[in-house]
């Protein structure tokens, strides 16, 4: 019996989210006397594959297939399902991110395995299998029972953390999957964001709202973000006004993020915005209105004019970093 983790790599390097998934899987596996098996699709070096052992993987199944060059949900699902069967996996864990959200539902339907997406903790109980997830965009939690023998979970980012395990090198097994049919999609073009930290990957996010007055004031946000190695984000009115690109919109209908530190400048904290950031570990809010709702979710707040606060804040952090 195993717990199978679907890993993701970008250009041959595993993402941090993958290590969190393994840490989480290891915790579950202990409780059901199972072993953690990682599935890696595509080209990853043996050194990189060995890293998975540091987070609890006893075995890594690698799959290479030309048909998997492009992320085709149907073909990927078929490949994962085959490995699930081969490894007798009872729990399958994916990240609650773009590909996890694309693949987990298909896998669930294919295996008739109950899916709980966006789980935020280890199961409350294993028999019956009950697990907690966020609902109503972070306004509440639901404890959900899975009735099927196989369970599929997607884990909300940063909800468990990365925990190093014993660290024996995992057994690596190359496995051939037979995939019927071809993809119905052909790649026309790709537009990759380069040289910029992705919002969903960032540990620290610096974000601005309408209180920033205008796009010209974003240099302050960018300077602070660069100093902290942070990504930049914004609230919905800002992207609607065209001050910032839509890709930076964080909130209920934009991106939902869970960084370690979220710095909100000139964001009043409308309920829809809070829905997108409530899982952040620490929230710092800068706002001139002492009664702005953002202070209800913030851990630290500065009340005052961002034009006076941000340059100071940035300078003080520079001093700390240099000391």
């Amino acid at each position: 019996m195993t717990v199978l983790v679907y890993t993701e790599n970008r250009e041959g390097k595993f993402k941090k989210a993958t290590f969190e998934l393994l840490s989480y899987a290891e915790e579950l596996a202990k409780n059901i006397n199972a072993e953690v098996v990682a599935l890696s699709i595509g080209d990853v070096s043996p050194d990189e594959l060995n890293k998975l052992g540091n987070y609890g993987a006893k075995k890594v199944v690698t799959v290479k297939n030309d048909k998997l060059a492009l992320l085709d949900n149907k073909l990927y699902t078929a490949a994962i399902a085959e490995v699930v069967k081969k490894e007798n996996a009872k729990i399958v864990i994916l990240a609650d991110n773009l590909s996890g959200r694309a693949l987990a539902p298909r896998l669930s339907a294919k295996l008739k395995a109950g899916l709980v997406s966006g789980v935020v903790a280890v199961p409350n109980s294993y028999d019956p299998f009950v697990i907690k997830k966020k609902v109503f965009t972070g306004k509440a939690f639901a404890n959900v029972k899975i009735n099927s023998d196989i369970k599929v979970l997607t884990l909300s980012q940063n909800s468990f953390g990365i925990k190093e395990a014993s660290g024996n090198a995992p057994q690596i097994e190359a496995y051939n999957v037979e995939l019927a049919g071809e993809s119905n999609a052909k790649l026309v073009s790709v537009d990759m964001i380069t040289g910029k930290l992705l919002l969903t990957d960032a540990e620290i996010v610096v974000s601005g709202g309408r209180g920033m007055k205008g796009p010209e004031n974003w240099t302050m946000i960018e300077e602070l973000a660069e100093l902290l190695g942070a990504a930049t984000a914004c609230s919905r009115p800002v992207s609607d006004e065209g001050w910032r690109p839509h890709g930076e919109h964080v909130g209920q209908t934009g991106k939902i993020i869970a960084p370690t530190l979220y710095i909100a400048c000139g964001i009043s904290g409308a309920i829809q915005h809070v829905g997108g950031i409530s899982s952040s570990k620490v929230i710092v809010a800068i706002n001139k209105d002492p009664d702005a709702p953002i202070f209800e979710v913030a851990d630290y707040g500065v009340v005052g004019d961002f034009q006076k606060i941000l340059p100071q804040f940035t300078q003080l952090i520079k001093d700390v970093k240099n000391s």
Binding site: N143, N147, P290, V303, Q312
Partner: peptide
């Protein structure tokens, strides 16, 4: 395949620690 057993509300956040323009250094 699944059913919701129970809902919970999130724990209320601890009080926000507030600073002013004058003591950003403390933050």
């Amino acid at each position: 395949l699944t059913e919701i057993v129970e809902y919970e509300m999130p724990q209320p956040k601890g009080k926000c620690r507030k600073f002013t323009e004058e003591n950003v250094n403390e933050l």
